[in-house]
Design a protein around this nucleic acid. Structure first.
Length: 544
RNA sequence: GCGCCUGUAGCUCAAUUGGAUAGAGCACUUGCCUACGGAGCAAGUUGUUGCAGGUUCGAUUCCUGCCAGGCGCACCA
């Protein structure tokens, strides 16, 4: 069944074409859910937009367009789903759906389950979402944790709306950081052996370095192999942390292997041929200014070593070669200055700048007892994903990291995340789910084909159905913003609609026909809640 | 100095990406349990959207300037 929103957009477009208004592009026809339900179920501002072009008042245009639209709806036999079309306010055309429409959609959800909620927006496009990608030099921090939650949920959502999404972790497993890691472990080994050592400030200070050192000693690791050895040791820890957080990557991409396969030279050869590399002062520069960067960037230093950008250029070209046509990278805010040069590099290879999206994931501040928990990465004192997991559990952790717009700072209150009350949105939503499950368990009635959902006439019942049907619009926003956070807002609203209904109306013992109808309603709510929670990676408890 | 982000109710945040009377939660006050899970529901109070201009039928949203806070500005990674 086609989404009514898409159908109506086509109808509006048709009405414009009938008047020869071909200059209006598809994305200018917008159908919104009005903020106030007095303004209908869907609304378009097209008459206001056309006012200038047509030199007519928006109301006049609205009235005449509304007339055309009614005719088209008659021809297309869609009249049954639209109760009314009104021109209101400055000239908004507002569509009011019939109850039959809502009932038919509810039945659709109950008979097809989750599948009824799918929309194919992605057309199976291959999208690669790269996130976390932390150096294997220590446990994951809360900053990585937020990226992990956002990236994983985003991939879930993209898969659900018809993309072919893959999760990728880029492993910076060679170079300076790994050398420093190896040296740090080496020093700690000496220290454990009783030697007096001077431990430099830029070395890794965390106590876990001692653990690595002990293990390395047992395994008799040679000094020049310590970097790789320690990297692998710590990577295992990271993998376990991510697994416990419910995040599973499709690919672990290694920089070491990229280098070994000669991909950097290959990429540079190609850039050279295109004329985007030049030498100056003994260094090799990438002409990123050709694509809007502030200045050109060094890729090979005068001492012959690559800069950080060099493998990244090759790595991203490699992503395209692997067949992905949309790349999404989640980065911390400290990398925003890096966006232009990387975008320049993909353009240098002939890719559209829009095919690489960089999502900046802002930091989270952890609060305990009402005060921010101080952190200092240098001293190795930072809150880890592991600590948050141990303290509040996977469900609350994932939900809380997603609860604000990804581009906004986030205050994560550990005390609230642990609470089992309506103050804690995770429990509020899960409680709705558990309540529904409980009713369904105690019901003796089967919901079969002959449910008469048109018995659902109460205000709270209709409000709940309407809320269910907004789910797809929310997924649309997630796609447009590349941000899963709207799902968290929506689920809270959905849970609220259910709790309100529950409080005023009984499901069981109100007569077979009505009980059946209400069971169908809460079954529908359960399906949508389940779907939303799955996308966020939060569990769905039948009992709490 | 340059660039990016943020500034909305006492606090934490929304506002469907330019729409109609700027809304929720927390906190505070007051009601609702012999029935499906009260871990819930209902009612009440809270605003110069940092400031000043501009564009528009319409601005919290876009543009310019200023103020305040955060972050970033390497032949580091």
């Amino acid at each position: 069944m086609k989404n009514i929103q898409t159908v109506l957009i086509e109808v509006v477009k048709k009405s414009l074409l009938n008047r020869g208004l071909t200059q209006v592009s598809d994305d200018e026809i917008i159908l919104d859910i009005p903020s106030d339900e007095r303004f209908g179920d869907l609304s378009t501002n097209i008459a206001l937009r056309l006012s200038k072009l047509l030199k007519q008042s928006p109301r006049e245009i609205g009235l005449s367009l509304a007339g055309d639209i009614k005719k088209i709806l008659d021809e297309d036999h869609l009249q049954g789903f639209i109760k009314e079309i009104k021109v209101e306010g400055a000239g908004f055309i507002n569509f009011y759906f019939s109850q039959e429409y809502f009932y038919s959609q509810l039945k659709n959800i109950i008979s097809n389950g989750k599948e009824a909620l799918r929309i194919n927006l992605g057309k199976n496009r291959k999208v690669l979402i790269e996130f976390v990608s932390a150096n294997p030099t220590g446990s994951l921090s809360v900053a990585h944790a937020r990226q992990a939650a956002v990236g994983d949920s985003l991939a879930n959502i993209f898969d659900f709306i018809g993309f072919n999404a893959k999760r990728e972790y880029y492993l910076n497993d060679e170079g300076n950081q790994i050398n420093i890691l190896g040296n740090s472990v080496d020093l700690r080994m000496k220290e454990l052996a009783g030697e007096k050592v001077e431990f430099p400030e830029n070395y890794y200070q965390g106590s876990y370095i001692y653990d690595v050192a002990k293990k390395a000693k047992e395994d008799n690791v040679a000094k020049d192999a310590l970097g790789d050895y320690s990297g692998e040791y710590i990577l295992d820890i990271i993998k376990k942390e991510l697994e416990d957080f419910g995040v599973r990557f499709d690919y672990w991409s290694s920089q070491k292997e990229l280098t070994k396969a000669g991909k950097i030279e290959q990429a540079f050869e190609s850039l050279k041929q295109k004329g985007f590399l030049y030498e100056d002062g003994g260094a090799t520069w990438f002409k990123s200014t050709a694509f809007g960067d502030d200045k050109d960037r060094v890729v090979i230093k005068s001492d012959g070593a690559y800069t950080y950008l060099a493998p990244d250029i090759a790595y991203h070209e490699e992503k395209y070669r692997r067949g992905f046509d949309w790349l999404i990278n989640l980065w911390g805010p400290d990398h925003h200055g890096y966006i232009n040069r990387l975008k320049a590099s993909v353009q240098a290879f002939g890719h559209d700048a829009a095919s690489l999206s960089i999502v900046i994931v802002q930091l989270a501040t952890i609060f305990r007892d009402g005060t921010p928990v101080q952190m200092s990465t240098r001293k190795g004192q930072y809150i880890t994903l592991r600590e948050v997991l141990d303290e509040v559990g996977k469900d609350a952790a994932r939900f809380f990291f997603l609860m604000r717009r990804t581009s906004s700072h986030l205050d994560f209150d550990l005390d609230v995340a642990k609470k089992q009350s309506s103050e804690n949105p995770v429990f509020y939503i899960q409680y709705a789910y558990a309540r529904i499950s409980s009713i369904l368990r105690s019901s003796q009635v089967n919901i079969d084909g002959d449910v008469d959902v048109s018995l659902l006439k109460e205000k709270e019942e209709l409000a709940l159905i309407k809320k269910l049907l907004q789910f797809q619009a929310i997924l649309n926003i997630c796609l447009a913003t590349q941000d899963p956070y709207m799902v968290t807002v929506y689920l809270q609203e959905l849970a609220e609609s259910f709790h309100k209904f529950y409080d005023l109306h009984r499901v069981l013992g109100v007569g077979d026909a009505l009980t059946k109808a209400r069971l169908a309603l809460i079954e529908g709510a359960k399906i949508v809640l389940a779907c939303g929670l799955d996308l966020l990676g939060v569990s769905k408890p039948e009992k709490m």
